[in-house]
Design a protein around this nucleic acid. Structure first.
Lengths: 190, 190
DNA sequence: CGTGGAGTTGAATACGATCAACACCGGTGG
DNA sequence: CCACCGGTGTTGATCGTATTCAACTCCACG
């Protein structure tokens, strides 16, 4: 089973005592499906590496609707890294879609002053996140639902299998009914 | 007139010789309205701090439509910082909406190995970018055009004044006609 | 069992896209 | 200096896509 600790350990530039400190601060946690790890408005103090299971992050708009920002199956990091800046409380919820096993990292770890987590690694992950978000914005603005769905199942085939369709609809920004109809169309027309 | 160099100079932790090196690598450039600074697919080798005028970054989708990602009036940095990672050519164009004066920084500057630009500063800017993109996704998924437009003029009042409406429409992800009608509605209903 | 959530289907509706026509400049060249 | 032209923005008619609301099926789980 993959581990973020392993990934960090492979960074040659990290000193062994720092690595030791890092390891001692990481907690393995088992969480049940439906359990909420973070609520909107909380200070982001942790982030999570998924060893097993699947988490998701999402926002709830003024109309009460959920909008999923990302799914995090095995090997992914989740936890609103992006709000780990001063004066910015999390806007996102994080909860478990399946029973999961995670590595819990403390926010302090990515605090740059401590230098425990390589800034390079943090930058790298943030940058990829931006790329994903930008692509999503273009799709939302220019593609039909059908195109967005096809892109999704191609980009995240593993996820399509495990998460409920209404959550995929939420990720795509449409109602479950609309997604259902699109799937129906796709199954017929070939 | 503001300068990014000044902002960086204020970081106490940067050494004077590094600052010197940084200063020597920055070029001031005057560019005319319409001039393209970067095209999709080019390797991102520069980024730009706007001292005067206004730039924008945008993508062109498969259907040939422009989608504006950000406007950069005075004091903003633009240049697809987010694609400054290995193996990821820029997806965005950058050009000038007005005659502009900019500080051109070399990509090497933000290369973390050189440590010329504080990783903290880079992380900070990237993080804010993610927050903006996330907000935009929620708006695209949950808000009507009217709500999005109202949010835009509240968030970027300066920009509304200076950029053509068709570009604001592009930013909002709608046709110029639709935006025009919304503005008409708004002016009547109050 | 039975109960509630998930998914499907259908009818009516709403919102924005598309297409087309036109008004209004701002600039250019005659 | 004016006439023309192209680009920007507006308005209206029509069309298409997704929403909303409602009813129904199917399971999974208690």
């Amino acid at each position: 089973m993959k581990s973020l600790l392993d990934e960090i350990s492979n960074e040659k530039s990290i000193s062994s005592e720092k690595l030791q400190l890092l390891k001692s601060s990481v907690v393995i946690k088992h969480i049940a499906k439906g359990e909420i790890l973070r609520r909107k408005g909380e200070k982001p103090e942790k982030f999570y590496f998924v060893k097993k299971g699947c988490l998701r992050s999402y926002a709830i708009d003024e109309k009460g609707k959920e909008h999923i920002f990302m799914f995090a199956p095995e090997g992914w990091i989740i936890g609103d890294i992006e709000s780990h800046v001063k004066n910015m409380p999390t806007q996102l919820f994080v909860d478990a879609i399946e029973d999961s096993e995670i590595e819990v990292f403390d926010k302090k770890i990515i605090n740059l002053d401590t230098q425990l987590l390589q800034p390079k690694l943090a930058l790298d992950k943030l940058t990829k996140r931006v790329a994903v978000l930008q692509k999503r914005i273009i799709l939302l603005m220019s593609a039909t639902l059908q195109e967005r769905y096809l892109d999704f199942i191609q980009t995240y085939p593993e996820i399509v299998q495990r998460v409920p369709q209404k959550m995929i609809a939420s990720y795509l920004g449409v109602t479950p009914e609309a997604l259902s109809k699109i799937r129906n169309d796709l199954s017929k027309h070939k």
